[in-house]
Design a protein around this nucleic acid. Structure first.
Lengths: 226, 226
DNA sequence: ACTTTGAGTACACAAATAATTAACTTCCCA
DNA sequence: TGGGAAGTTAATTATTTGTGTACTCAAAGT
């Protein structure tokens, strides 16, 4: 999962060079741009995972570039880090207001920069992995990795069968699962249980997450509905 | 881990002599060079841990030397400190841009210089190794290199298996690790142990670090939660 | 070489919690 | 309105985990 793309935008060639050199060496694919407009152009083309923006640039400064990028759907998950001279209080505030993920003060120490960048990307990567293991329907969130269900931010504890049952139903919201189907998927074909068993589990689920989600289709089965 | 090598590059023989004298006395192995080219030559030969570079030197100045060194893979982890006359603002900026780790203003006070250098070397030694090997969650800190766990600053001694188990769980806080997963990751696939073994280790861990961190997900496994 | 110590594991039983069943009741809808 | 399907509840059973104790083995200390 390496080979992540980083775009650096700065008007000082020296800095561009140093950063690119260091980041390339760390195994990242690095792009550079000497001003805001060019930065946006490259970003559009390359879809970097991280954009490092100098705040102070002639014509179009970093904050503006950031604002532009943040506006676009496709840069929603792009990380943005600002480079700012120490004590430029205003810049830092503006930078964070406009949706920056980090700011790094100049003078730059390559070593520090690298570790900051690594941390940023690492955090983003785990956050993303989490997102993938997660299904959200309305105010209910099911996380298969944590084996947990959250309702309005409140964690709800479910027993194993309850969780499996809910996972099944929520995997295709709106679809009606017949009792047989539920038996096969949750209990497996070789276990035989009484026919009230499902009901009891459904009831426990409803007790915990609320009655409004699981709907009974009489004579057929159940469906999850938001 | 003492006996670190320091290279000093300066065109003033007096300074070289004073610095070498002081650094030798501190137990460092000190090399000297009177100009940029020589500095590079010695650096290539001796692979010093720290290079102290005078910025103002005839022919090849400190910044150029630094740039050259930084370009080379083998000097990646070499610390570079600049010597600069006070108020040479430009130099300081260029120096740090080019990848310097510190700059020290002249006139030099040996005592101050030594402590700066010590601090630099200490930071480099610890920061780099430690930073990557350390995970902190709430008031628990796990250091994979030192195989130690700290709770509220108090070190807790863990046996190897206990430590491995904790490391695994803490590597993805919140994620539930199934018993199988734990067996595979901690014990390996080729060892077969009784099925109460995990429990016993979990209990010992909880005994040592407190019950509030490791949560049982019945029927599935365990997770670390802060 | 002999003891001591402690990690790691196994085992047996207790405790906790989950799953299932049984016995009802209630709810739809023909 | 009557009968089957689903809901409810408590009781029962099954499963899983926790815990004390004991054994083995290897490392450390003497």
């Amino acid at each position: 999962m390496s080979n992540q793309k980083i775009l650096i935008v700065d008007d000082e060639p020296d800095i561009l060079e140093i950063l690119k050199f260091n980041l390339d060496k760390e195994g990242y694919t690095t792009f550079i741009a000497a001003n805001g407009e060019e930065g946006i152009k490259v970003a559009e083309e390359e879809n970097p995972d991280l954009v490092v923006l100098d705040i102070m640039m002639p014509r179009m400064d970093g904050v503006e570039v950031c604002r532009y990028l943040r506006q676009k759907e496709k840069f929603n998950h792009t990380l943005i880090a600002f480079l700012t001279a120490r004590d430029e209080d205003y810049s830092q505030i503006a930078a964070l207001e406009v949706g920056g993920d980090d700011y790094i003060t100049k003078p730059i120490r390559p070593r520090v920069l690298i570790s900051r960048i690594k941390a940023l990307l690492r955090r983003a990567r785990t956050a993303e992995a989490e997102e993938l293991a997660t299904v959200t329907l309305g105010n209910l969130t099911v996380n298969k990795e944590r084996i947990s269900v959250t309702k309005d931010g409140q964690e709800i504890e479910l027993a194993k069968k309850e969780f499996e049952l809910l996972s099944l139903l929520i995997s295709k919201p709106g679809k009606v699962f017949s009792r047989d189907e539920i038996f096969n998927k949750v209990w497996g074909t070789d276990v035989i249980v009484g026919n009230r068993t499902i009901d009891v589990h459904i009831r426990k689920l409803r007790e915990k997450i609320g009655d409004e989600y699981i709907k009974t289709i009489k004579g057929i089965g159940y469906k999850f509905e938001f």
